[in-house]
């Protein structure tokens, strides 16, 4: 068993990293790992309420995010400073998360065996 953190920093839809990163989380949930996800910098937009990619023809994933917990990713942290910098608040976030400061992220990071950036 490993403690694995997914560190998401990229905005959704402009590139595929956020989506393919989420696919990794969903698969890893089937294995005996302890998973955590962090959303900071532009990745906070991956959690934004009201996303609608239908006009782009890109598969959206806001409907997939609520199942993260069912797939074994019980810890989901969002960095407050990243939200603040983008004019966002807790009300903008579509799923239950913990909004934390940089230090809380650093502490959780220090406990990990592996950190996968997306």
């Amino acid at each position: 068993m490993a403690k694995i953190m997914f560190l998401n920093r990229k905005a959704p839809h402009g590139s595929i990293y956020a989506w393919e990163g989420l696919e990794v989380v969903l698969i890893f949930g089937a294995f005996d790992n302890e998973l955590a996800a962090v959303y900071m910098d532009d990745a906070v937009f991956s959690l934004k309420k009201g996303q609608d990619t239908s006009e782009l023809g890109i598969k959206g994933f806001i409907q997939t995010l609520p199942v993260l917990e069912d797939y074994g990713c019980e810890t989901i942290l969002v960095e407050k400073e990243s939200l603040d910098a983008r004019g966002m608040t807790a009300d903008d976030i579509a799923i239950p998360v913990q909004i934390v400061d940089a230090e809380a992220i650093a502490n959780l990071m220090a406990e990990q065996d592996v950190i996968l950036p997306f």
């Binding site: 920093r9 900071m40 910098d41």
Partner: peptide, 12 residues
């Protein structure tokens, strides 16, 4: 890119 800035903010 702000990866260096974010790294410095988070790194212990």
């Amino acid at each position: 890119d702000d990866s260096l800035k974010s790294c410095v903010r988070i790194a212990k």
